[in-house]
Simulated scan of single mutants.
Amino acid sequence: MSANNTSAKQTDKATTSASLAFSSLIPDVILDAVESTGLWSDSRIYPLNSYENRVYQVGIEDSAPVIAKFYRPERWTEAQILEEHATLLKLKADDVPVVAPLEFEGKSLFSHKGLFFCLSPRLVGQHPEADNLDELYQLGELIGQVHQKMSDQPFSQRISVSPLMQIDQAAKQILSANVLPKKLTPIYQQQIAKLRDMCEKRIQTYWPAQLRPVHGDSHRSNLMLHQGQFHLLDFDDCQNGVAVQDLWLHLTQTESPRQQLSEIIEGYENYLPFETRELDLIDVFKSVRVINYAAWLQSRWSDPAFVKAFPWFGSEEYWLNHLNELKNCELEWGNISR
């Protein structure tokens, strides 16, 4: 057997072992990982709401609890995670309200049982109210501040957003997995093709000459009002992207999305000018998010946590609802940005 084959088999074995450890994290493994950093746990563990990664609140003897985050194997490389951490630590040093990983002897990323993990302080607070215009203004300010501080240089390790590629990959994944009922497959293909064409035309009309570092997933659950100040959480999806990616998710289905948008942009422009042509990309990112969600569920179906949390996925009713969502994306095209 060649050295290359031996190395490949060892890598595959390590990957399988890490995946098994991740899907069945037990308290002893979690506590051993936390205590490997030098902390002493009081053995209290509370799982937090996270599907992509595994996140727990862990009690610490004679101190405040910490948040332990175990990264899903093979999703990000070590270099990509370290770039995320470096960004957060820089933002914290610049007094930007984010939650940065804790460092121990100059390290923020650790490995246990083949799993990468990090620890961070616990933050207690409330998520923003969906339709509160004052809070939307504050959120705009926070995102503007984050973008300003991250604007020094693009990420070198993280991904760069590519909407058309995302649509193509998601559709290919769904169709190749044979999870769609056969009678709905032609309808799905037609709807995806139509939305892709609409996205391509919008991108051809305007796409920024240079992408910028963005959070990438700044929905309300990733924002926390703590001691009167909003904090931006979980930079797991940080990437090179477009400013409006971090803004449009705060627009809710109300009669006045333009007023909401106005408040967000007004707050944002206290730190950076906003290119209004990016508003025409909202429909693109909205469509991509809807298309990707189904592919994300399908790609994680081997994880028992997903089977338990999303038992309805794959049913004919699910796919009918998904096709309806795709149709609504088309019908709502341009309602927000114009």
Rank of each mutant, 00 (worst) to 15 (best):
N4Y: 15
K13I: 05
T15L: 12
T16W: 11
S17M: 13
S24A: 14
I30L: 13
E35K: 09
L39W: 14
L39C: 13
D42F: 15
I45T: 08
P47V: 13
V58A: 04
D62M: 10
A64P: 05
A64Q: 15
R75S: 08
E78W: 04
A79V: 09
K92C: 01
D95P: 00
L102H: 01
F110A: 00
S111L: 10
K113M: 03
P128K: 11
A130R: 13
Y137A: 06
Q138T: 05
L139R: 12
G140L: 04
G144L: 10
Q148G: 02
Q148D: 03
K149N: 06
M150N: 04
D152N: 13
M165W: 02
D168V: 04
L180T: 07
Q189A: 09
R196V: 00
I203N: 11
P208C: 02
G228M: 13
L233A: 05
L233D: 06
D236K: 09
D237N: 13
C238P: 03
V244I: 15
L247T: 03
W248G: 05
H250D: 01
P257T: 00
G267W: 04
T276E: 11
L281R: 06
D283V: 00
L297A: 03
V307Y: 04
K308T: 07
P311T: 05
E317Q: 12
Y318P: 00
E325M: 06
L326P: 01
E330Y: 13
L331N: 14
I336F: 02
